[in-house]
């Protein structure tokens, strides 16, 4: 699971949960991969991600991003490469995602988060 996917995942389907976001990550196994870089594509992704969540999550995995996206980010090659690395190249292969409101765990196995809920857990 990439941090871009984490940036989109919520537990808002659970009963009693308002936002369910961001999910806490407990990473037991992490890989770094090489994914094709395209500055134009990554620049288009940036307005779609929750930057605060990305920067705090990325720092847990050793990538330091500023608290706000720099104003010149579209022409800032170093920053774009860093964001590309954080969003697409850090791969959490084993661990858990944890609902911030209920503590419900969603296991990640072989890089795939299991977000399935039982019928009695969902709204």
């Amino acid at each position: 699971m990439k941090l871009l996917t984490h940036n989109m995942l919520t537990s808002r389907c659970l009963k009693g949960v308002t936002n369910g976001y961001p999910l806490k990550i407990v990473a037991n196994e992490v890989k770094t991969e090489n994914v094709d870089y395209n500055s134009e594509f990554i620049a288009r992704v940036i307005p779609k991600v929750d930057w605060k969540v990305l920067s705090s999550t990325a720092s847990d995995f050793g990538v330091s991003l500023p608290e706000e996206p720099p104003a010149d980010i579209e022409s800032n090659e170093d920053m774009l490469r860093k964001v590309h690395h954080a969003l697409l190249e850090i791969e959490i292969t084993q661990g858990d995602l944890i609902c911030p409101e209920t503590g419900r765990k969603f296991p990640i196995k072989q890089g795939i988060p299991n977000m399935l809920c039982n019928e009695d857990e969902v709204k």
Partner: peptide
């Protein structure tokens, strides 16, 4: 080039787990 940019998520499509 490198790894394909694909993730899989195990989920019921009709239950909203993505923003």
């Amino acid at each position: 080039v490198g790894q394909p940019p694909i993730d899989f998520v195990e989920s019921d499509v009709t239950k909203c787990v993505l923003k």
